[in-house]
């Protein structure tokens, strides 16, 4: 009995959570993307001509970011990769 009650309770909680989260999923995804874009710009700042005192550290991150780079530079209005040696398209 109590187990049934618990499962009903869990179902209700799950439903409510979906009801809370779903309408704004897209807004959140966009906000996250904007933040990641900013981060990407920091990582690539040397290549974009902005001096970056932490370039040693960001350079290490570059391989991690490559997957997302193509979509990123397209979103920023650059038809080609901003880094000469790294072409993704």
């Amino acid at each position: 009995m109590s187990r049934e009650l618990m499962s009903l309770f869990n179902q209700l909680s799950r439903g409510l959570r979906e009801f809370y989260v779903a309408p704004y999923r897209r807004v959140f995804a966009r906000a996250q993307r904007d933040e990641e874009d900013l981060f990407m710009m920091l990582v690539l700042s040397e290549a974009l001509g902005v001096p970056n005192p932490a370039s040693g550290a960001t350079l290490e991150l570059l391989p991690e970011m490559l997957d997302r780079m193509h979509h990123w530079h397209l979103r920023q209005g650059l038809d080609h990769s901003p880094i000469d040696g790294l072409s993704c398209c």
Binding site: G15, E18, F19, A22, P23, R25, R26, A29
Partner: peptide, 20 residues
Amino acid sequence: DGVDFVPTNKYILWGHHFTS
């Protein structure tokens, strides 16, 4: 894609649709 396109239980979806 977990963002815009998410299969949703019809009762919950009705709740959203109705309240929107």
